[in-house]
Amino acid sequence: MRHEDFVAVFADPDVAEKALRSLHDEGVTTARVASPAPFPVVHHTGHPGPWRVLGWVALVGGMTGLGCAIAIQVVTSRHMNLIVGGKPILSWTAFGIIMFELTLLFAGVTNFTALVVLSAVTRRWFPRRTRQQVTSERIVVVVPMAGVPEARRKAIRGSMSQAVEVLS
């Protein structure tokens, strides 16, 4: 964790949420939270991330799957001398099923990959050693203190008075 950060550990999600609201009242909107479960407190940090992108990424993945399914049909039909029981391979109706399946498969896999990659990116905003403090009974709130005047620091510490442990 960075020396300037104020790190407080809470045992109760409600108390953590109250502390965060209190910080907001003080005008501090830079606090971050790490929690073992998606308690309401994680939605009070005011840090919208890049997750709107996820829907578009899944859509692009799905379109790629559709493209691949069409490519399998067209490329193999035109460039390969294939034996399919003496019948032509080009059959859009029959291939509709495969297009559907590959569209959803690629959308799902892309969505998962995007989640893993973007999680790794957003995680970097949070100090590593602080992240490791999270357990089922420990919700960690981090407030960057760099450049914060002493009077305000006191107010922040006051807001966090319900914490069970203050790490720095």
Partner: peptide
């Protein structure tokens, strides 16, 4: 790690 950003993405 359960950071707010990760939960946002997860949800």
């Amino acid at each position: 790690s359960g950071t707010d950003g990760e939960w946002g993405l997860f949800e």
